[in-house]
């Protein structure tokens, strides 16, 4: 099927054999081999892990470049466009479920495990524990066994609120870029895309600074009992998704600069935008459930 005449959009484009999938899988083999050894204290694991990551990214880069080229050659008809839309929607749904697991953990800890640990029955085991949320104060209220060092929590002000503003703004600038693209104003699109990417980067910097502040001044760490666990895994995975979304937008911007996408057809752009909005919404959830409540 690869021999379709250039220019004519096939009914459905089925690529011929490709070396990318298997090479990407080999990359991930090194990643999991390395990661599983590294966290068990094997130094070679670290190198294997990074080698695998580099390999994998390199393959992905080639793979996506090939897909972008096919798209630009006009091989992707309306059907493929629709396939991409479906697949991106389902992928985002799976991401929602992933975050759902961690939000559930937060809810369970607040509504079930911590109160239960402090109830009359459990006084048999933890006689001094008083359950409060967030479980901050030293000794008997931070954790049943008194093993968690005292720490302070962060409220919504100011860093998280600034970050909320940053992300919301980036959503707006992204939408402006999208409108501009649809009107064919390429320069304006690119300008607003760069602003969006920069907002994303700023968010990450602020988040990094906040983590630094928490670790060094508030003594809030991953090991700060179940509060620290849920706090860092939720915000951490969100931060990672911001990073990935930011990379997507970055590459889309580069593609825009080299003339990819048209006013009518630009699913690569839209997919990245959906993802970015999803990351936004998750943040709002975090902002309310983790910082405010």
């Amino acid at each position: 099927m690869s021999a379709t005449t250039p220019g004519a959009t096939p009914y459905y484009y089925v690529p011929s054999e490709s070396r990318h999938p298997v090479l990407a899988a080999i990359g991930l083999f090194f990643v999991i081999l390395g990661a599983s050894q590294w966290i068990n204290g094997q130094q070679w694991g670290k190198w294997t892990f990074w080698f695998g990551i580099a390999w994998w990214l390199f393959v992905l880069f080639q793979w996506f470049r090939e897909a972008a080229r096919e798209s630009e050659r006009g091989l992707y008809g309306r059907k493929i466009d629709l396939s991409y839309r479906w697949s991106m929607s389902w992928f985002i749904f799976s991401e929602c479920m992933f975050f759902g697991a961690f939000f559930t953990a937060l809810w369970w800890a607040r509504a079930h495990s911590v109160p239960e640990l402090g109830n009359v029955e459990n006084a048999l085991i933890w006689s001094d524990f008083k359950s409060v949320w967030p479980s901050v104060a030293a000794g008997a209220t931070a954790s049943p066994a008194g093993t968690v060092e005292p720490f302070e929590t962060v409220g919504p002000f100011w860093l998280p609120t600034i970050n909320t503003a940053l992300l919301l703004t980036s959503g707006v600038t992204l939408t402006i870029a999208h409108h501009a693209l649809r009107l064919g104003q390429r320069a304006r699109t690119i300008a607003f895309m760069w602003i969006t990417v920069l907002l994303g980067v700023t968010f990450l910097i602020v988040q990094g600074y906040e983590y630094y502040h928490l670790y060094t001044e508030l003594n809030l760490k991953m090991s700060s009992g179940v509060f620290g666990s849920t706090f860092f895994l939720l915000t951490g995975f969100h931060g990672f998704h911001v990073f990935v979304g930011m990379l997507m937008l970055f590459f889309i911007t580069l593609r825009l600069q080299s003339g990819h996408f048209t006013a009518e057809r630009h699913f690569g752009f839209e997919g990245a935008a959906w993802y970015w909005h999803f990351v936004d919404v998750v943040w709002l959830g975090l902002y309310i459930l983790v910082y405010w409540m």
């Binding site: 966290i39 800890a109 239960e116 640990l117 049943p144 968690v148 090991s223």
Partner: peptide
């Protein structure tokens, strides 16, 4: 297991049942 969280550890406020 490796990063000191206590999702499933009652001593840190977590819960194996979770």
């Amino acid at each position: 297991r490796h990063f000191g969280t206590s999702f499933f550890n009652a001593a840190g406020g977590g819960d194996p049942i979770m």
